[in-house]
């Protein structure tokens, strides 16, 4: 037998094949983790305080106007038999409500996140594809057609668009001065510039020919905003705000901004009246309606959660690192005596 044996089978002696790739081997030992925890904890406490203070400086005024209780100011309107009902919400500001002020409406117990409801729309129609005006997608059912005529925009989601109206007046020397509302920039820029498009054709009314308005709507889509013709159809911002479904059953939606004239700096102290055009029914499903005035910081509206969360987690880190220090000092490894 040949004693001469080659080495062609010899494996390569490389770091990879020998599983010796240079590697960082971090060890979660107390020596690293304790200082790390202290650092993270302190940083979090710092951030928490900052967030907390920021959030606390934000002013919020919130009023329910559902009108369930008899003594509530909108009680008379909550009965849906009354058409075009108006009710007044009076409130007083003790100090300047710093601007820019954002005005929201809020609904509770309202499930915009219901699946079939959310799917009940026709995305092609909403992107201005004329084909789908006369043949709406069947996902729009039961708001696909109204007496055989196709609905535009079809579907339950557009159909149920919020239609209460608000007007704010300041009482200046006994007279009502209307506070100008800004209806621009309340929905995402990409929504009204790219994602949603009106059907081609001018005037808009002509483009909508052969369709009918959603049954719940008082006016057709091309007449949503009577003051600004460019804010009509599918790119009406109120409509877009509504079309962005809320994640949870209690939600708020931006209605108007107060950015114009002397109110740009905020609402000065004084008496105000909010005139509400009460149209939207919510009592059938125990819903609530509210209005909210709020200003915002860089991080958005008033939000206590973040500040508190950071403070809690931060202090837990610090406490735990102390506990670990005690454990470490007392036990170490049992064998290290």
């Amino acid at each position: 037998m040949s004693k001469e044996v080659g080495t062609e089978n010899r494996p390569d002696n490389t770091a990879f094949t020998q599983q010796r790739l240079p590697a960082w081997q971090p060890m979660l030992s107390a020596g690293i983790v304790i200082p790390g925890f202290v650092l993270i904890g302190l940083a979090f406490i710092g951030i928490g305080v900052a967030l907390f203070v920021t959030s606390r400086n934000i002013q919020v005024l919130e009023r329910d106007y559902t009108g369930v209780e008899k003594d509530s100011f909108c009680y008379g309107c909550s009965d849906l038999k009354v058409k075009n009902c108006k009710c007044n919400l009076n409130f007083t500001l003790d100090k300047l409500f710093e601007g820019p002020v954002f005005f929201y409406y809020g609904l509770s117990n309202y499930f915009q996140n219901y699946r079939q409801y959310g799917n009940s729309k026709d995305a092609n129609q909403l992107s201005g594809d004329k084909e789908y005006f006369l043949e709406p997608d069947e996902s729009c059912a039961p708001y696909e057609r109204d007496g055989g005529v196709p609905i535009a925009p079809c579907g339950a989601l557009p159909n149920s668009m919020f239609n209460d109206t608000f007007k704010l007046y300041q009482m200046v020397n006994g007279t009502r001065v209307e506070v100008p509302f800004d209806g621009k920039g309340i929905s995402w820029w990409t929504d009204y510039n790219i994602k949603y498009r009106n059907p081609p054709g001018t005037p808009l009314k002509k483009a909508f020919e052969g369709t009918t308005k959603p049954p719940f709507w008082p006016r057709p889509a091309y007449e949503l905003d009577t003051t600004d013709p460019s804010n009509n159809g599918f790119i009406n911002q109120d409509f877009l705000v509504w079309m962005r479904r809320a994640a949870l059953p209690d939600f708020r939606k931006l209605y108007r901004r107060i950015t114009e004239g002397e109110y740009a700096k905020g609402l000065p102290a004084g008496k105000y009246t909010l005139v509400i055009g009460y149209n939207y029914p919510v009592r059938a499903f125990n819903g609530k309606k509210k209005v909210v005035f709020s200003n915002v910081s860089w991080m958005g509206g008033k939000n206590k959660f973040l500040g508190i969360a950071y403070l809690v987690i931060g202090s837990m880190c610090v406490v735990m690192s102390i506990v670990m220090l005690i454990v470490y000092a007392k036990f170490k490894f049992p064998d290290e005596e």
């Binding site: 929905s187 209690d250 708020r252 931006l254 901004r257 509206g301 959660f305």
Partner: peptide, 24 residues
């Protein structure tokens, strides 16, 4: 955690606009 943030139903953006379910 996300619910606590969104559930306060305040705006999370500097321009006061709101997020929807997909953002959540």
């Amino acid at each position: 955690g996300s619910y606590a943030l969104m559930g306060e139903d305040t705006s999370l953006m500097g321009n006061g606009q709101m997020f929807g379910n997909w953002t959540f």
